[in-house]
């Protein structure tokens, strides 16, 4: 076995590409969960974003429009979830699973005419000066714009939650919806906005798969990425910065595993692919053992104003 053929610069660049879809979806889900809502339908919203983004991009030969379309489609698909859980007090776990089924079915119907087509190319943006840096230039600063966007989004969400009043209100709603309601905040409206944001992010993540990472449309192409995004939010103990770490770690383990194989190392593939999930459980245990209740206190609980 000769591991010298693995080029760490290219490896990290690949990890960034491979992690971007789950990073986008996870940061959206983080906001949703921060507001106290658990939406298990990420997979469904991602794949709908993937197909709509692809369709829009192909029809207009514009990947940029594709991403816009994907975000709108993801948000639109999350709307029934938002209405059901917020206005009709339906159970979030069941509604989320229903959302997943609807998304998977719908995407496959929409996608039939687009099978076998090629995506319009999505240009890389070499950041001036920085991309000329030795090593780091190729590793970090020669990606397409969505990679930078996803990182920027993480920073924005972090800043929003930490420093803005709106972010504070969102967290309050997620921690104690009854008190937030008593203070006069519109719990439902805030949660619906959060759900729509989560849907849009999942849609973007899906479109990144179909427009950049693969790039093509095929039925069922998200292959569980939405569930990984859910895991990452937990792994991150609901902190934006750690979502990025988690996404790169998940992406990293899978890409590294492939690279090890390519370099000729014998790796127990099936068991290694389970390792990110085991790590997540471990992290969960450590967080909860420390007694830090990281999860938003109202997570998954229905809210009715006249309690």
């Amino acid at each position: 076995m000769d591991l010298s053929s693995i080029n760490p610069v290219l490896l990290i660049a690949s990890i960034m590409v491979s992690a971007t879809p789950i990073l986008l979806a996870a940061i959206g889900e983080l906001v949703v969960e921060k507001s106290g809502v658990l939406n298990l339908g990420v997979e469904g919203m991602m794949i709908t974003g993937a197909v709509v983004g692809f369709a829009v991009a192909v029809s207009n030969t514009s990947p940029g429009l594709g991403f816009v379309g994907a975000a709108l489609a993801g948000a639109l698909l999350s709307l029934p979830f938002a209405l059901l859980t917020q206005y009709l007090m339906s159970n979030q776990v069941a509604t989320g699973l229903g959302l997943m089924m609807v998304g998977l079915g719908l995407s496959s119907l929409i996608g039939k005419p687009y099978e076998g087509m090629k995506a319009p190319p999505f240009p890389k943006v070499e950041i001036p000066l920085l991309s000329d840096l030795p090593i780091f230039g190729r590793m970090l600063f020669s990606h397409d714009i969505m990679v930078y966007f996803s990182v920027a989004l993480v920073v924005a969400v972090w800043a929003f939650l930490k420093y803005t009043r709106a972010g504070l209100i969102l967290r309050a709603v997620g921690e104690a919806h009854d008190s937030a309601h008593a203070l006069g905040y519109k719990v439902r409206h805030i949660r619906i906005l959060a759900i729509l944001f989560g849907g849009a992010c999942a849609g973007l993540g899906g479109a990144y798969l179909s427009l950049v990472r693969v790039p093509q449309w095929t039925e069922g192409m998200t292959a569980g990425a939405g569930w990984i995004a859910l895991a990452i939010v937990v792994f991150a103990s609901w902190r934006p910065g750690r979502v990025a770490v988690g996404a790169y770690l998940f992406g990293g383990v899978s890409v590294l595993q492939l690279n090890l194989q390519a370099a000729g190392a014998d790796v127990p593939v099936a068991l290694l692919s389970a390792s990110p999930y085991l790590i997540t459980i471990l992290v969960l245990v450590i967080i909860s053992a420390r007694g830090a209740h990281a999860a938003p206190a109202s997570l998954g609980r229905p809210f009715h104003a006249s309690h």
Binding site: A231, Y277, L284, S288, A289
Partner: peptide, 9 residues
């Protein structure tokens, strides 16, 4: 530890 997430993982 939250059982939703552990059981899912």
């Amino acid at each position: 530890t939250n059982e939703i997430l552990v059981s899912l993982m």
